[in-house]
Design a protein around this nucleic acid. Structure first.
Length: 313
DNA sequence: AGCTCATGGCGAG
DNA sequence: TCGCCCTGAGCTG
């Protein structure tokens, strides 16, 4: 489920629902119980995304009381999180421009492959045995299950985490030159580099496959043989595609001229939603050239590409 | 009911 | 490179 767009969307939703409010925090499963009880009833300051990582800032001791009460009015009659206003979502990168807060404590959440953070109806708890973390007010409740990480951390650990990550195309403070320097001096393949969170944070298996397809780059192309121009185009494409993913809550990468409407083909109908060129389309005809889409296992993940549109060079 | 796979990432070898 | 962590949806039967 989670590439960077999902995490950034969640951060915006959590902000919208909880920022400036007292939140009840619990861990019905018990595996985060000690930390939860420490935060229970304190004020949620903000949620911020770094690549695929989510950082919740409670800073209970630093929030002025007047801010708390003002927040209650500010949020009066607010819609439920899944329908956060688009302006609010798109403004997220500006809200968090620069470095993260330096106070804390923070909750560091990393969903990994199977972790899920979902909005539920406030009230009765179901499936407590797998419920790692629950955040709740009268209006909203969010549940975290199966995360790879859920830990109470300080500002040093947040800074350390951020330092290990490459630039995030979804953040206004991202520096694509930093990624380019890594790409340029690496003999590893672009397929490998794009999945490496130290190179570019937030890109996952779908965006990897789709951005390489859109830029007609063979996945086995070594980073060292990529031109600066080609990298600029990859980055620009991610900066265009990923915010759309945040906005729409799904990954669409097909250009208008290749869309079902333009070509008369059937729209994609599977549980993963979005219109894509190659991801999970192995054996099906390429939307542009008609050749069967290729797939192979690469570094323990499925890699998809079109052998005709993405020529080796 | 059971099996497989998933938009990740880690540590051991 | 492999095994392993963790959950649940989507199949098969």
């Amino acid at each position: 489920m989670p590439e960077g767009h999902v995490i950034h969307r969640l951060a915006a939703e959590l902000d919208h629902a909880f920022a400036g409010r007292r939140v009840s925090v619990s861990s019905p499963q018990g595996r985060f119980a000690e930390a939860s009880s420490l935060l229970d009833g304190t004020v949620f300051r903000t949620a911020e995304a770094f690549g695929k990582h989510l950082v919740l800032d409670f800073s209970p001791l630093t929030v002025p009381e007047e801010f708390v009460s003002a927040a209650s009015e500010r949020h009066e009659g607010s819609p439920t999180p899944p329908t956060v206003p688009e302006e609010f979502v798109s403004a997220a990168s500006e809200r968090h421009e620069g470095s993260p807060a330096t106070s804390g404590p923070f909750v560091h959440i990393h969903l990994g492959l199977i972790g899920k953070l979902r909005w539920v109806k406030p009230g009765a708890v179901e499936g407590a045995s797998t419920l790692r973390l629950r955040l709740e007010t009268k209006e909203h409740a969010a549940e975290l299950r199966g995360p790879q990480a859920c830990a109470l951390v300080g500002p040093e650990e947040v800074a350390g985490l951020v330092a290990t990550l490459g630039p995030d195309p979804l953040r206004a403070d991202a520096d694509p030159d930093r990624a380019w320097r890594r790409v340029h001096r690496s003999d590893r393949t672009m397929a490998s580099l794009l999945m490496d969170q130290r190179v570019a944070a937030g890109v996952g298996n779908i965006y990897r496959a789709e951005v390489l397809y859109r830029q007609r780059i063979h996945p086995d192309t070594p980073g060292s043989s990529l031109s600066r121009r080609a990298w600029n185009r990859i980055w620009a494409d991610l900066v265009e595609l990923m915010p759309q993913g945040v906005m729409h809550g799904r990954i669409d990468t097909v250009r208008p001229e290749d869309s079902p409407e333009a070509t008369g083909r059937d729209p994609r109908v599977d549980r993963h939603g979005g219109e894509v060129y190659v991801y999970r389309r192995a054996g099906q005809p390429c939307l542009v050239c008609g050749r069967e889409v290729s797939m192979r296992l690469f570094e323990a993940r499925n890699l998809y590409w079109c052998a005709r549109c993405q020529r080796r060079r």
